[in-house]
């Protein structure tokens, strides 16, 4: 089963939320809070929506809001894909 990794997440973020000019999305961002990357709650809802459709994963609304870094969102998604999210 396909899992979500950082490069793919980067592409999805760029596609559905754009890229903040002050943030370096290409750098080591795993533990950088989304807010520091310039992403607000709407950007994350849009991103989560694309992830859910592309990977067939169900992400709970509250869990998405609580995933505040790329690492947390990757973990959440991959647990859901594995069926224990």
């Amino acid at each position: 089963m396909a899992t979500l990794d950082l490069p793919v997440l980067r592409d999805i973020l760029r596609e559905c939320a754009g890229e903040d000019d002050a943030a370096d999305l290409g750098g080591d961002i795993l533990d950088v809070p989304f807010s520091d990357l310039g992403y607000d709650s709407l950007a994350l809802l849009e991103t989560a929506s694309v992830i859910q459709r592309r990977f067939g994963a169900r992400l709970a609304d509250d869990a998405v809001t609580q995933a505040q870094t790329p690492r947390a969102l990757l973990d959440l998604t991959n647990r859901a894909i594995a069926g224990d999210g």
Binding site: G18, E19, D20, D21, A43
Partner: peptide, 8 residues
């Protein structure tokens, strides 16, 4: 425009 504004 800022990158964040374009998709929205």
């Amino acid at each position: 425009l800022p990158g964040r504004l374009v998709p929205q």
